[in-house]
Amino acid sequence: MILAVTGGKGGVGKSTVSYNLGMELDAVVIDGDLGMADLPAGHGPDLHDVLAGRATPLEAVDESGPVALLPCGRTLAGTRAADPTALTKTVRTVASEYDRVVIDSPAGLRCDAGLPLLAADACLLVTRPTKPAVIDALRTRELARAIGTPLARVICNRAPANNDNCNRLGTTLGAPVTTVPESPLVARAQRSGQPVHAIAPDSEPTQAFASIADAVEQMRIDTATVATNE
């Protein structure tokens, strides 16, 4: 199962959702933000090296942290040398070994945002209950539709409980919505390079991420059924 976590707008929490979902799904998280990576960097080879043909996808997976991670380099030269079209093959190689892969996609609508969608079986759209974030989420929804990647779920991040805007998002974007509440725990966990599960296993955000993971597991069955029927 390959999931792309996307959203269009920067700063809505795509990396946070990817990392925490990676924890709940026991998946490898690939930092697909080739230009401006956010997830912790390791000391070994990274995605830039893999996309430039200097390392294999599997040797770049870092299993030393709480979540298995394929980190991304931070240099301009590395971004320039990486061939973005090699992402699909890289992701499939990782999925063939680890089964579950979550790709943290970059903001925007250029090819680096489109390629994770192409590589994924389904996508999750992260947004916030604000107008600019929802507008960008709509654009990304259209991009996913054009590429042919089904939308598994909408994640309304850092939102107050029972927020009307979040509830309406489901109809606007055409997928069920999970709300992840605003919480200092998530920020604290992220700062220390941990998923929120590791520091507060019973907290509301942890439950929200776990419910997204459950929903996606269900979706996985659906995807498999569709594939068999075809």
Binding site: G35, T79, P84, L115
Partner: peptide, 10 residues
């Protein structure tokens, strides 16, 4: 995709 969406590399 690269052709249509544009190269994102610097």
């Amino acid at each position: 995709l690269l052709r249509t969406l544009g190269d994102s590399r610097p």
